[in-house]
Design a protein around this nucleic acid. Structure first.
Lengths: 344, 344
DNA sequence: TTGTACGCGTTATCAC
DNA sequence: GTGATAACGCGTACAA
């Protein structure tokens, strides 16, 4: 009857550790660690032995221990404004697809377009030592910027594409994109073009700016035709805005909705009111969301490169996470595409 | 000039640690730890001193160290099939709202309705020592079940509500819900009622079952009117299904779509084809998603308690995570509500 | 190239 | 009720 010595204070979780693998392989733990992480400077033969033993014992590295010992963990904090906006779901999907196979795990946070919430999320998750940061846009609190800066965690900004020195971003020009839509309506012979927007976040306002400039250049901008509404975007709101535009400016011959959900709602309102589209009023949306091609008539929209944004941002971040500061932050500006359909 | 001794191999990250707080407060680290976690058995006076010092120094606990030293971390792994399905976005939102203020952090994983993907996610994230698990439904691989079981992590299942001993779940009866919709169509005098479904995951099939039983009970079930399609759900597919139903069974007088996106697509197809709804064909959906109230005519649908599911599941999980095995797993069955609108 | 020694920041265990 | 000690599992630093 050999009792374990009372000095045995182990509180092992029972899981297989690096030490177990090392023992089995007749190597030191550190060598196994190096081998398993694919570090150079390990003799192929030893590396094989290490891998074999790990495989055999079903060894799985402990992320917590890893995060504690090294400077950071495997998670990449991804902050988006809202999951009910399909745009960000597409971005997240692409981010996951790029990051996960490389051993990085997206940690999704939702800010609800609220700087204070974003700051709280950063305050909460930065201590988790994420390996990287993926943030939407540039519109955040000073404190948040500070937290990010001082954390030293590599960070890529999504959805916009200004050229800022020392800052990494992947996106497109919201302003130019909106101008393209507006230009299209002008090309269709429309002159009384209304702009309807909700949410009024930074990117929405950039779109408003694109619309405005384009019409000013054409000499037919009328501030009375801008309908900016701080409520959150929805089909219901789109319908209400459509009716409001009609009531306030009966001579309007086109409406540019800043997002497809609004536009779809607008189109349905037109159906209800028996307003002919595009006969009386042309309707254009933005983002080319699901269902826009099914509307009656099908909705003209601007397809934004969401998946590409996610992919490119992940690639850029991977570079930065691995290359240390070697890889300078870049700014990637992607293209978009106008999808012309029956509504214009 | 006092150089640090060369034996000082510290590689501190510069962050404020428990030791720093303890030093400042004139206490031992463990006492500070206990105080900050609100453990009993700490003299109020000391606890105050500890909190004050922590506050002063801006101490933030390190989740990695915490996860390593204790049995698990602060994250709760939440696995949902798809973010493009608004249902799960609502669930996630409610889960976050309930968990986050309690110091638990949702870690979102997307399975794409794929058992293998779910298994991979579990294999990847379980080693992160999540404090709890929130999984969608019961339809998973044997290996996944095993991983969950052996991890010992408290787990609550979402969206369904079978009574299984020793298993926790929060949901509603998909079968009953679908039967309610079908019953409604019968009550409206319809007899040739088609059922259109996509995705064909477990819950969709449960809805099909509810539809079937209800019609069988009424003596007017016709297997030829079940249109089950494995593709993923979308408005476009709903439109195609609508046309297919019309082509194959021109005498159909109602269609029950298993999800609102399909139903919305169906309604738009009806518009295009000038098929009168509900004159010729009544249309009902499921889930009461955004926009269904905006359709022309507005879509009758069944409002499912997504937010409540998220809330209740989080509450139940919190119980389990805190109470240890004291709190027995329960099964919470929630109500749903039929929303009757113009389409029926 | 490999291994030794130790630190990462916290909590569990046990003695006082 | 409080604190010393060790352990959690791994990676960094440096020596050999």
């Amino acid at each position: 009857m050999i009792d374990p010595p009372s000095t045995d204070r182990r509180r092992s979780t029972g899981r297989v550790t690096l030490r177990d693998v090392a023992l089995a392989a007749g190597l030191s733990p550190i060598t196994v660690s190096r081998a398993l992480r694919g570090e150079r400077a390990v003799a192929p033969a030893l590396a094989d032995r290490a891998r074999a033993a790990a495989q055999q014992l079903g060894y799985v590295p402990d992320p917590a221990a890893r995060a504690l010992a090294s400077r950071h963990g495997s998670q990449v904090l991804v902050l988006v404004p809202m999951l009910s906006n399909a745009v960000f779901v597409d971005v997240l999907e692409a981010v996951h697809r790029s990051l996960f196979p490389q051993g990085f795990h997206p940690l999704i946070g939702v800010t609800h377009y609220d700087a204070a919430e974003e700051e709280l999320l950063l305050r909460t998750y930065l201590p988790h030592r994420p390996a990287g940061l993926l943030l939407t846009g540039f519109d955040r609190s000073e404190a948040a910027r500070d937290l990010i800066q001082r954390s030293g965690v590599p960070c890529v900004h999504l959805m916009e594409a200004p050229t800022l020195p020392g800052i990494a971003c992947v996106g497109f020009s919201q302003t130019d994109a909106a101008a393209v839509v507006t230009r299209h309506l002008l090309d269709r012979g429309r002159r009384r073009i209304a702009f309807c927007a909700a949410q009024l976040d930074a990117r929405t306002l950039q779109r408003a700016e694109g619309y405005r400039r384009c019409l000013q250049d054409a000499g037919c901008h009328d501030p009375a035709l801008e309908f900016l509404c701080p409520e959150r975007s929805s089909m219901g709101l789109g319908a209400r805005l459509f009716e409001e535009v009609l009531a306030r400016s009966p001579d309007v011959d086109a409406i540019f909705f800043c997002n497809d959900d609004l536009a779809q709602g607008g189109l349905l309102a037109a159906n209800r009111l028996k307003v002919s589209v595009p006969g009386q009023i042309a309707v254009a949306g933005f983002n080319d969301l699901a269902g826009s091609d099914q509307m009656v008539p099908p909705l003209t929209s601007l397809r934004t490169p969401r998946a590409e944004v996610g992919r490119a941002a992940a690639a850029l971040l991977l570079d930065m996470m691995r290359g240390g500061s070697a890889h300078a932050p870049r700014c990637v500006r992607l293209d978009f595409e106008l999808i012309v359909r029956g509504s214009t």
